[in-house]
């Protein structure tokens, strides 16, 4: 230590110290910081628990190595975002085969979901779960979001996200009650029939704008009851039910003899 103390005033000392400090910080960071594949802090235990969950709930279809089969997609490289989307919306684990996996009450709690996500993310690099800031509707521009939504989303999900039909019994679900995080993840990962919209296609800012546009729809319509926001067909149905209904009723009253 004496030797060290003696060289404390060496003119290179600050440089060495700085290098040491950088090394230590870097090492600690490397140990503690999350890998880019999962935004949450995923410990080794998490990954292990996730693996157990995977073997118990998912391996039957996706295989013990998560590599899928001809009819079941491989999960290597799908990332934590895909797992969080599928599991937190209850689509996975699937209960029955049908035209598509449908939304249902989630079968895993938030912790289990994140453990499973950590495990799948550890299998291969893929999109991470977005942070709260990335999906904060108040930071987005609803007008820009509207134009992105119109071109990329409205043809399947309807102009304001009320949902729509695809071929052979598949459908694009309604988006109005979907968590902003799940909307973001869906764009990023392209679940099931939905194509992928990577960050070169729709940038992270534009994705947030889309979320802001959808958030605007929570206020309903300026015109009154939305009638499902389904467009002219529901308007036509209601003009017969309410309009013609009331007026034919009035006509019968007018034509009837007074008692």
């Amino acid at each position: 230590m004496k030797a060290l103390a003696a060289r404390r005033h060496h003119r290179l000392a600050p440089v060495v110290l700085l290098l040491l400090a950088l090394l230590v910080t870097g090492g600690v960071y490397a140990l503690l910081a999350p890998s880019p594949a999962s935004a949450d802090t995923a410990s080794v235990q998490d990954i292990e628990t996730g693996e157990k969950l995977f073997q118990a709930n998912c391996a039957t279809c996706h295989g013990p190595d998560a590599e899928g089969s001809d009819t079941v997609p491989s999960l290597v490289g799908v990332g934590a975002a895909a797992v969080d989307f599928q599991v937190s919306t209850g689509r996975m684990p699937m209960q029955a085969s049908g035209p598509q996996a449908i939304e249902k009450p989630a079968q895993m709690d938030a912790e289990q979901t994140s453990q499973l996500a950590a495990y799948v993310a550890s299998l291969g690099a893929g999109p991470a779960i977005p942070t709260d800031e990335m999906v904060d509707a108040s930071k987005g521009d609803p007008a820009l979001g509207a134009s992105v939504f119109r071109t990329n989303c409205a043809m399947c999900h309807n102009a304001i996200g009320a949902g729509g039909a695809l071929s052979e019994g598949k459908f694009a679900p309604a988006l109005l009650d979907v968590e902003p995080r799940n909307i973001y993840q869906a764009m990023l990962t392209g679940p099931q029939s939905m194509p992928v919209f990577n960050d070169a296609n729709i940038t992270p800012e534009e994705k947030r704008d889309v979320i802001a546009y959808l958030a605007e729809q929570h206020d309903g319509s300026a015109g009154g009851l939305t009638l499902g926001s389904l467009g002219p067909v529901s308007e036509g149905l209601w003009v017969w039910v309410v309009g013609m209904g009331l007026l034919v009723g009035a006509a019968v009253w007018i034509g009837a003899k007074s008692s």
Binding site: A146, S147, R150, T151, A154, M155, C156, H157, N158, A159, I160, A162, G163, G164, A165, A172, S221, A222, G223, G224, L225, T226, L227, S229, L230, G231, P232, V233, E235, G236, L237, W238, V239, W240, V242
Partner: peptide, 25 residues
């Protein structure tokens, strides 16, 4: 009852289209 909220559909642009593309009844 809201009817034909055109701001939902947006200004005409030949590229987009929305699900439920139908005319009046």
């Amino acid at each position: 009852m809201a009817i034909n909220n055109v701001w939902n559909y947006g200004p005409f642009d030949p590229s987009p289209v929305s699900a439920g593309a139908q005319p009046d009844w």
